[in-house]
């Protein structure tokens, strides 16, 4: 499931549930639709309510990173629980996606 909140050029997308191949396919369409708004320059994924992610989720994140990079924008992430954080490390996602403070995103 995808919830989103926009604040100027920043779009915070809160993901929830299990991000596998099945869920990633659905999320991809929803997030791309939100990114049709070309005002968005920074995309922040909130993983607080994500209980599981596998490599299909990683592919979906990298895909959105490419969308943002193509427009000169950037991507951040917050709320990484240990299993998701481990996947970020194994996939090298920390090198391209900066970690944000979850609480700051909540109060933004």
């Amino acid at each position: 499931m995808v919830r989103s909140r926009k604040n100027g050029e920043v779009l915070v997308v809160s993901l929830s549930g299990e991000i596998d191949h099945c869920a990633a396919d659905a999320m991809r369409g929803e997030i791309e639709a939100l990114l049709k708004d070309t005002q968005v320059r920074r995309l922040i994924f909130n993983f607080e309510d994500v209980s599981f992610m596998d490599s299909s989720g990683v592919g979906m994140i990298i895909g959105r990173y490419k969308t943002m990079r193509a427009r000169g924008g950037s991507v951040g992430a917050c709320g990484l629980h240990p299993p998701v954080d481990r996947l970020f490390t194994l996939a090298g996602l920390h090198r391209i996606i900066a970690q944000e403070d979850a609480e700051r995103q909540e109060n933004a």
């Binding site: 990633a24 991809r28 596998d54 490599s55 299909s56 990683v58 592919g59 979906m60 990298i62 895909g63 996947l87 194994l90 996939a91």
Partner: peptide, 14 residues
């Protein structure tokens, strides 16, 4: 082209 990462077997091994 389908946003597959090629990480599946690597993760199984990890």
């Amino acid at each position: 082209d389908e946003e597959r990462t090629g990480m599946g077997f690597s993760l199984m091994l990890s």
